[in-house]
Design a protein around this nucleic acid. Sequence first.
DNA 1: TTAGGGTTAG
Length: 598
Amino acid sequence: MHPRPKLFHGKFRLGNISPGNKHSLRPFSSDNNPLPIVTELISNQHWRSLKTHLLDANATTLLQQLLDSRIDPCLTLRYYKWSEEEFNLSHSLEHSCMLLHSLANSKEYSKMRSFLYGFVKNENHISVSSIFHAISISGDSFCAGSIIADMLILTYVNHMRSHLGFEAFKRAGDYGFKLSVMSCNPLLSALVKNEKVEHMEYVYKEMIRRRIEVNVISFNTVVNGLCKVGKLNKASDVVLDMKAWGILPDVITYNTLIGGYCKKGRIGKMYKADAILKEMIASEVRPNEITFNILIDGFCKDENLSAAMKVFGEMQTQGLKPTVVTYNSLINTLCLEGKLDEAFCMLDEMVGSGLKPNVVTYNALINGYCKKGKMKEATNLFDDAVRQGISPTVITYNTLIDAYCKCGRMEDAFALRESMVDRGIFPNVSTYNCLIAGLCREGNIAVVRKLINEMQNKGLKVDFVTYNILVGALCKDGQSRKAARLLDEMVKIGLRPNHVTYNTLMDGYCREENLRAALNVKTQMEKERMWPNVVTYNVLIKGLCKKGKLKDANGLLNEMLEKGLVPNRTTYEIVKEEMVDKGFVPDIEGHLYNISGS
DNA sequence: TTAGGGTTAG
């Protein structure tokens, strides 16, 4: 492809002289109007004859004349494409936009779409601002300009350029072009997918401010974006907004909100999810299979299998048939709890009801075997899946690779990595993370370095999990100070340390009995508005107890409760072994017996 | 153009 010339400012100028035509620049004269003949030639695709005619003019001048005339813009488009190809030239952005204006006026939308793709597909694309400038000066129909802007945004979004789509959305506002849901909804959705929720919020607010038409899909997408980043209160506010706009929440709105609470909600999240379900039913929106699947999976992830099974029963009472997804959630949970027999019973039930297990089902079961270290059975299941015509995915391989690493069979792990490539499945960051973690366990730092280099050569970026593994490895090796420096490195490359990162580092300091440093990490977390979780407290309480600082540990226990965090089984074990058994009675003793009994 | 399930780090 040839880079297009920059936009011509001011009046159109004669440029782009076609090769082999250097001696003659005379345009077609008005008294000897060749347009009817030229139109005829283009229409019949008599390109050779047209080329002969062009000896008297240049390609750009003819384009200008076609654009100035009232001829069918589709013919002008045909000529535009042919002349670019034939004379190895790029028409100006202004001419391109003039053509887009006439295509828009003739409602030739599909032709506009493919034409606009030309603006987007090149890596060295034309800047959004110059396109908008060209749109505004190359036609006087505000309506056509709006359509072009709208389609341009959609083109960016459809070709994975949502950042440019977002920029174009802002520009469209500057020029006052009126956009539609046809482009704004896909833009909202793309911004959510690319985790640009703040940009999504901006687009949403602007849609309302600019009085762009919004529909139930716009609201649902916004609710989904907010749920994904845990802004659940804001998501609920958007549901109120939509009602205020006279748009009633539908089953997707409610499912999204319930799913948001199931995944990101904190204490009592399932209670809240259940409350939304009740509100949904009260609003006469009927829950569907997906509603039940979300709830079942929510209870499963909340380690409440009995509640999940109850919802599973309720689903069937309501006359809804469980789907593959329903069974997969339950099978996965049973596998993670080590209840493989029950998982296989569930599989039988699933098959018995006419459902075919898919790769997710197999991945869950393979993982079940892997977690028990039953590699032979896991491999057999893998072969079984392949025989059934189910193609393994990168997750299937990662599951097996991780299991081999965890039982110290590094050679088998690396061999599997080779065989996945043979199958055309390429290792991803997680594959490398599993291998790196395995090598770290063995203390084989030299190979870890080699793997990280290899990843980078393959264009794979290390992620926060990679760093967390490395932080953990250094901490275990008594090099917590060095691990702390990795956190700075993470921030430098744009990765945000998460709870695991901080908790791992804190644990390292506690092992080194450097409690001051460990408590400083907690302060650092709080400064970053990353609120300590149960694991944070468990690590610190254990560290303080080991140093005999039982009163301080007790203080932290109280702080944890005041913050509404629920102590878990590990908390109980620490407190029992380190405090109660040593004759110290913590303030939360009664509370702890409740947990131990649960 | 909107909602659900499977792998890796504490």
